[in-house]
Amino acid sequence: QAKVAEDPAEIWCDSLKLGNLQLVSKLKNPSDSCSVDVSTVWWEVTGCKESCIITACEFTVSLWKSLDNWQWRKVYTWHFTEIPVLQIIPLWDACNLVCVALGHLEIREIRLLFCSDDECLKQSLVKSGNIKAVLGLRHKRLVCSNGTLHDHQVDLMTFSRSGRSKEKQTLMSPEETILAFAEVQGMQDALLGTTLMSNIVIWNLKTGQLLKKMQIGNSYQASICHTAYSDMGLLFVVLSHPHGKEIESMGSPVFRLIVINPKTALSVDIRPYSLPQGHTGRFLDGEVKDNLAAAVLTSGTIAVWDLFLGHCTALLLPNSDGNWSFVKWSGTDSCLLAGQKNGSVFVYSY
């Protein structure tokens, strides 16, 4: 039985189990505008640093503080007037700082959201232009690529604790469109990117050097890198394929694990992560955290894979409210945050 609490945070607690997922909470944003993203962020609320949920609608971004019993209270809302919000860009180990990307189809602006000492909500413009890819990194850093082929630029920005100032460094451009960035776990000075021409590129963040450009084959064009691990001289990279073609009998791998030798630029496919039989859909949105990968599919279903086990461990079918449209892992625990366009965000423990 579901129990629905009063607004602002409607709470559902029941014993519904879907594979390894258990619904523990539901946040309902009363705003009428379309929901676009969710994430978690460290925030100091009433003198105490805690993990909060942050939700984005078209023209608002809201911070939710955790109460007892998986209930949530909205504490801050930043408003935007001209350009709609496209995505939240968390800076993983930062406190009281988060970035958002604004734009229509493509990112036009990146803004930093924070609070002043007197608790006033602030936002500052970090970058504007034709932004192709962006990622928040550890140590209050953000990397973004912008411009067209001829004036292509990759910038690394480091924010101060208060968010008032930033240092900017330029990384060497691979001279082609970057689709996504990924941190390399275990190597804090390394950064990875995937490009439109099916290359994987590696930078040294300390020196800004472009270390290698590696072709990974044309079988999966426009792959998105999600995370990478460095081990025993090899790079293990998790990719997704938004443009993968479905093969009716077996579907298409939603994620793929490949191994690359950065010295030789040779790579080998290790494992595809496909949907269970009877399910189809292409990757729309998703995130990888540690050994868990989650994706929203074109079918409106969310699927979860354990990258070590190699198979799908949970499926979240569209519910009576509609299809899923975005999914994230919480930063601090094994919770899955699943969102719908109507403003509902469901929290599942995994």
């Binding site: 590696i202 472009l210 001289g233 191994v259 010295k263 030789t264 080998v268 290790i270």
Partner: peptide, 23 residues
């Protein structure tokens, strides 16, 4: 995978590529 698939592996690949790459 083996060295026959991926070529010779170096544990210090990051430092080596940094010293080889243009500044």
């Amino acid at each position: 995978c083996s060295e026959s698939d991926l070529g010779p592996i170096s544990l210090n690949w990051f430092e080596e590529l940094t010293s080889e790459a243009p500044p």
